[in-house]
Nucleic acid binder design. Structure first.
Length: 564
DNA sequence: TATGGCGTCTGAG
DNA sequence: CTCAGACGCCATA
């Protein structure tokens, strides 16, 4: 196995190991879900309550995004856990219910219940048909949402965010209906279908000041009357179309109070009413921009879900001045350099055939030429039966050698445990495909691009590495040795310190430090591979234990992101 | 009466 | 203490 494959796999261990124990799935998931340190369904409920219900019931006094920043409620890690959990649920259908129980503060909200409020989408595994079934679903009416983020990123099963919404949202929200858009089977139990005719949107997690900032920034003149700010908000964040008018007061309040905004005399005076224009305070733009991106990073899913046109987000958010965060995935210099290298080395069976049109490589932007190219240390991937994490170039490029087939790794402990037809259904439909979308659409991928030097610090990553490896060893040695890293590459935790970890390989030794310097790039490549064709480093997670790979990948991503 | 500007209060971090 | 949101008050067209 090559260094690179080792590197890319190693940091996926933490969650992967946990998820792997979900064979037979239930208990470990239950534990994870109930562990306050790793996952808090109750906190998630509170979280959502804060971000949604309160505006329906004005006066409860929580900012839209506040719930999301609650350390007990949200961390990227947990979000990714949910992502991974979703995947695992697919892979371990018998335990889905148990996770739901564990996840949802109110299991009835996820299950068909006669005395419960209109049931939300519940995706169940049908062991007999070998497909994901949705039950207790509302009538899917989401065809009217052509540009929905969901259409790009939400799988046929309940997405993590859907679960979030479902598990805690006390009021009816058509997000749930939208979440069923790609359900393979739906049963309408919605007694008021008219409520679904127009999809509703969650309240933006952005604060009012951020929303105002976006409005002003997107204006041609840089200044807008308050009415235009209203319009902007309702246009881009449809939540405000139906929200109680209190939000307008808040907008005005923010304009007056926040030093980020300045009053500008309305010179044209064409408005019959009094009022002035509001503009951005140039001295505060940077701060606002930073804040904006911070929120976007915190919950990219919800950010986009709340938008009428999620694809506009990049325009509204604007460039990131501090880091190279907004680069399209393919414009990550290090990633591109890697891909180029990989391109030259190896072929992959996981080729472009699975590409979706919109996933064709994005032309590199000018960033690429402006930014320094980090050294590329990837050794050529070599064929190895366990080379599950061998680098693979993005689709559209010649693939990487030594990568298992798209059908998955035969040695995978979970291979062969897939219910019949499962992989084809989800693979071709939206299961993993939407996971990759999640990575693409969300800032997870982008944020990987933006690793700061501090995060590439070997010491820090060494510690992370150590923790992850420890987790794997403790959680499930079998998984760690067969699925993730290969037994031959797992270092002995007792023989190395975190900053100078030496990894033994079958035929050679290499330092993890070298590995670590590449890890972030590997992350990006992993994500890219995932995003490209549903393969995780050449594996189709749905067919392989790649669900764990994804979860591990997400975990690793967010582990670093959370440290940023 | 609708709208805009702004102050106060409250809750969370 | 700071910040953000909800709410209310007042001025104005």
């Amino acid at each position: 196995m090559s260094d690179s494959s080792l590197c890319s796999s190693s940091h996926t261990c933490t969650l992967q190991a946990n998820l792997s124990t979900c064979e037979p799935c239930g208990p470990s998931f239950q534990q994870m879900a109930e562990s306050p340190d790793t996952f808090s369904p109750r906190a998630a409920a509170l979280n959502r309550r804060a971000s949604s219900s309160e505006t329906i019931n004005p006066g409860s006094g929580s900012a839209p995004g506040r719930g999301l920043v609650d350390p007990d409620c949200f961390t990227p890690y947990r979000r990714q856990f949910r992502d991974g959990a979703e995947c695992c649920l697919q892979q371990c259908p018998p335990s889905f219910g148990s996770l739901q129980d564990a996840y949802s503060p109110d299991a009835s909200s996820l299950r068909c219940s006669s005395d419960a409020p209109p049931p939300t989408s519940t995706i169940c595994w049908d062991q007999y048909t070998g497909s994901v079934q949705s039950s207790c679903l509302e009538t899917p009416t989401v065809a009217v949402e052509p540009n929905s983020f969901l259409s790009q990123s939400y799988p046929s099963y309940n997405s993590p965010s859907s679960l979030q919404q479902v598990s805690s949202r006390p009021y009816s929200n058509n997000d749930q209906a939208r979440s069923t858009k790609y359900s393979l089977q739906t049963i309408s139990t919605q007694s008021h279908p008219e409520t679904n005719t127009e999809p509703s949107f969650p309240k933006p997690i952005y604060s009012y000041s951020i929303l105002i900032f976006m409005a002003l920034q997107s204006s041609k003149t840089g200044s807008l009357p308050v009415s235009e700010i209203y319009s902007f908000m309702t246009e881009h964040f449809p939540y405000f179309k139906t929200a109680p008018d209190g939000w307008k007061n808040s907008v005005r309040h923010n304009l007056s109070l926040n030093k980020c905004f300045e009053k500008v005399e309305n010179k044209n005076g064409n408005s019959s009413r009094k009022g002035c224009l509001w503009a951005l305070n140039p001295a505060k733009v940077g701060k606002m921009q930073e804040e904006l991106h911070k929120w976007r990073r915190k919950d990219p899913i919800t950010v986009r879900r709340s938008m009428a046109r999620p694809e506009d987000l990049d325009h509204l958010v604007g460039p990131r001045h501090d880091k190279v965060r907004s680069l399209p995935p393919y414009t990550n210099p290090s990633l591109v350099s890697r891909m180029t290298l990989c391109h030259s080395t190896t072929p992959s069976p996981c080729g472009p055939a699975l590409l979706r049109p919109h996933q064709q490589p994005i032309p590199c932007s000018g960033y690429l030429q402006l930014l320094p190219q980090p050294p590329c240390h990837i050794p050529p991937a070599t064929a190895h039966p366990n080379a599950t994490f061998a680098l693979r170039p993005p689709c559209g490029l010649p693939p990487t050698a030594g990568v298992p087939s798209t059908a998955g790794h035969l040695n995978s402990p979970t291979a062969g445990k897939m219910p019949p037809g499962y992989d084809s259904v989800l693979q071709t439909e939206c299961g993993i495909r939407n996971m990759q979308d999640l990575l693409l659409e969300g800032d997870v991928t982008y944020d990987l691009d933006g690793f700061t030097p501090s995060l590439t610090d070997l010491q820090l990553q060494g510690n992370i590495w150590e923790e992850m490896r420890e987790d794997v060893l403790v959680s499930d040695p079998q998984v760690s040795t067969t699925t993730l890293c290969g037994s031959s590459v797992l270092p002995d935790p007792r023989s190395h310190n975190s900053s100078n970890l030496v990894v033994r390989q079958t035929s050679e030794e290499t330092t993890v430090s070298a590995c670590k310097t590449e890890k972030e790039d590997e992350d990006a490549v992993c994500g890219q591979n995932l995003a490209e064709d549903g393969c995780v480093n050449g594996l189709h997670p749905v067919a392989y234990s790649g669900v764990e790979n994804i979860a591990g990948y997400l975990t690793s991503c967010t582990t670093f992101i959370s440290l940023m």
